[in-house]
Amino acid sequence: MLKTLTSVTILICALNGLTAQQEFNIQKRTAIDGYYSEAHDVTTSDGYILEVHRIPFRRFQISENDKENPKPVVFLMHGLQGSSLSYIYLGPRRALAYLLAEAGYDVWMGNARGGLNSRRHVTLDPDEDAEDFFNYSYEDIALNDISDMIDYILKTTGQSQLHYIGHSQGGTVFFVMSYMRPEYNDKIKSAHLLAGVGYMEHFPNRLLNALAFSTDIIYSLAVDQGILEVLGPRNPNNFDEEVYRTNPVLSLLRILIDVIVSIHKQLEILAPASMKQYAHFGQNIRTKSFKRWNYGPLKNLIKYGSLSAPEYDLSKITINTTMHYTVNDDLLDERDVLSMASVIPNAKVRKIARETYNHNDFVLAPDSKELLYDYILEELDKNR
């Protein structure tokens, strides 16, 4: 399903401005910034309905004359608790999505299940059927959301390949999909990963390291309490203080939420996610690995044929991949980036040339254009 904003709507939006609630309406936000946009509904193979956003033209254009030569396609995928807004947040002349549109690319931005405008399912209600709806980790996003969005984009544009850009968990799901669904290696022409999280042998965040030792207990207690969604309507931070004095489980969950919020300084760009996504990362932080979901020895044996969860084998990824990283990242260590790049056959690394650049600066820092985006554009232009 396709939803568009006409030129008249763009003008009305520009005159009226945006309210706080409308900040999450990507089409209205892009209209204010002067860009025509489209919203597409993509239904995954397991029934989740995702809103995908497209910016097909340059600023102040609503069509283009050259329809004979289709534009190269770039697909942008956000990180954990992120959304399409991550890639337009910096505005015209600074945001990566807009810079790509100005450079002549057909820009698509994904939204993972449970997040921005994607808290929908063909049969499940996220509130009434929360235990089933939020029973997903980043692997489910990789094997269903990412692959299905890519297929939809390629079919809609008539292209056989696209370029992929992923921030944080957007890199994680790229690794998982490319390994577990190898046919997608032929559908991605090149990839740029912005602090793409995978290996966790040297995970740098001390507090999350400490919490990770209890990740299975925290997740089990959260499910028992009906806390299945992070920063959603049932977020522990929304409860009265009296609840915390009588419920230590929620107090522990609140600490986790506070850590998450402290990592993401720009609260207005946060979108909901499942508790299981965090639990899956927590399992890997605890075991200093990059593995599939750990069900426990018996269930692992039934599902995987082994007592432990299998590792994701990054050596099977054949895509031309550039891994951008920073030494001031609280969620990804330089040593883990270099280890992943040494395993992926066609990977190279690039360190951001600012020592204070952090994990979220990849999509939030105004100087990302000079430090990162200009380079990405140059590389994409070499391989349009």
Rank of each mutant, 00 (worst) to 15 (best):
G79V: 07
L80M: 12
L80Q: 08
Q81G: 01
S83D: 06
S83F: 00
S83M: 04
S83G: 13
S84D: 00
S84F: 00
L85R: 12
L85H: 11
S86K: 06
Y87F: 15
Y87S: 05
Y87C: 11
I88H: 03
I88G: 02
Y89N: 11
L90W: 04
L90I: 01
L90F: 05
G91D: 08
P92V: 03
P92E: 06
R94N: 14
A95Y: 02
A95R: 03
L96A: 11
L96H: 09
A97T: 10
A97C: 09
A97Y: 05
L99S: 01
A101E: 01
E102F: 01
E102P: 01
A103D: 12
G104T: 03
G104I: 07
D106F: 01
M109L: 15
N111M: 01
N111C: 02
A112S: 14
A112T: 12
A112L: 03
R113C: 03
G114Q: 07
G115N: 12
G115Y: 00
G115T: 12
L116Q: 01
N117K: 13
S118K: 01
R119S: 13
R119A: 04
R120Y: 10
R120S: 14
H121G: 12
T123C: 11
T123G: 07
T123D: 10
T123R: 12
D125N: 15
P126G: 02
D127Y: 05
D127A: 14
D129A: 10
A130I: 08
F133P: 05
F133Q: 02
N135E: 12
Y138Q: 11
E139I: 09
E139C: 13
D140E: 15
D140W: 09
I141L: 15
L143C: 14
N144A: 11
N144Y: 03
N144M: 08
D145A: 09
D145I: 08
S147C: 13
S147Y: 00
S147A: 13
S147N: 05
S147D: 06
S147L: 02
D148N: 15
M149D: 04
I153G: 01
I153D: 03
I153L: 11
L154A: 11
T156F: 00
G158P: 04
Q159W: 11
Q159V: 10
Q159Y: 05
Q159R: 14
S160I: 09
S160L: 09
Q161W: 07
Q161C: 11
Q161G: 13
L162W: 00
L162H: 04
H167S: 09
S168H: 03
S168W: 00
Q169I: 02
Q169L: 13
G170T: 08
G171C: 06
T172R: 02
F174S: 09
F175D: 07
M177Q: 09
M177L: 15
S178M: 11
S178Y: 09
Y179N: 13
Y179Q: 13
Y179F: 12
M180A: 14
M180F: 08
R181P: 10
E183I: 14
E183V: 14
Y184P: 04
Y184V: 08
Y184E: 08
N185L: 06
N185M: 08
N185E: 05
K187G: 07
I188W: 06
